[in-house]
Amino acid sequence: MAMNSIGYLIRQGIRNTINNGVMSLASVGVLFSCLLLIGSSVLVSLNLNNIISDIEHQNEIVVFLNDDISEEQTDNISEFLSNKDFIDVFEFITKDEALEKHINITGNNKSLFESLKDDNPLPDTYNIVLSDLSEIEDFIEELENFDGVEKVNAPVEVANMIVSIKHTIGIAGIVVVFVLLLVSLVIISNTIKLTIYNRKKEINIMKFVGASDIFIKLPFVVEGIFIGLMSAVLSYLVLWQGYNYLILKMSEVDLQWVSNIYNNIILFKDYNLYILAGFSVVGLFIGLLGSSFFVRKYLKV
């Protein structure tokens, strides 16, 4: 296709978008609302995940070691722990350090613990914080099988609950986004179908003066891209301003649970590029696919 034709067809596409003002506006409106809903649910599920992760990081596993543990056995456990990538941090605490800690935190009853210094009943321990709780049960079992480990104390039930909540939120997030995408596709394809139906006659005329399929399709595709991108930018701007406004309002509320959420809230600017890219891709994809798919139906003349 010659360059002057491409220029003409792109101009034609933009002109059509403007000429079909009401339909274009309807398409942008529908796509905009859908993208905004999708964006909001993504932000909600990201935030929930972040809050759960924060709770997740408050877990602590304590491994009590036998009094007669050898240095080799301690090294074995240390090595095992260093190789686990779901461990956030671990610390070896000797019995003396543990006693010291107790003495420091007990305050008034210092003498009670100080008297134990000669015959310290506390064991050496490993204190472990996990970054991912999903494998906690297997992990504990492995630890318990080590020589020199007397007992492992771990919040298994809480951990399992957190894991299942996280899992549920993940799945629910995906389902909600998927359903919204599907609904958007249905509504948008109907809007596009209506737009194209209105211009069925025009397409028919084009066919009879000998326009090739691509010549007819290109202005519609340009229109689709234009509408898709416009909706993407618009919904991005509204989501961005709306989210930041919400955060601002939350910072002003004097309630414990609100400030708990506020402390763990994700910042829009950390995700803005992903959101803009996602919106653009979805907008472009729907605009492009919708227009070229439905024009095809009327090209069979």
Binding site: N19, K201, E202, N204, I205, M206, K207, F208, V209, G210, A211, S212, D213, F215
Partner: peptide
């Protein structure tokens, strides 16, 4: 399309593009 360009067609309802 190339074939149709070798014909000139006039319809009863004119079939002009309205915009």
């Amino acid at each position: 399309p190339k074939y149709r360009r070798s014909l000139g067609v006039v319809f009863q309802d004119f079939r002009l593009i309205p915009d």
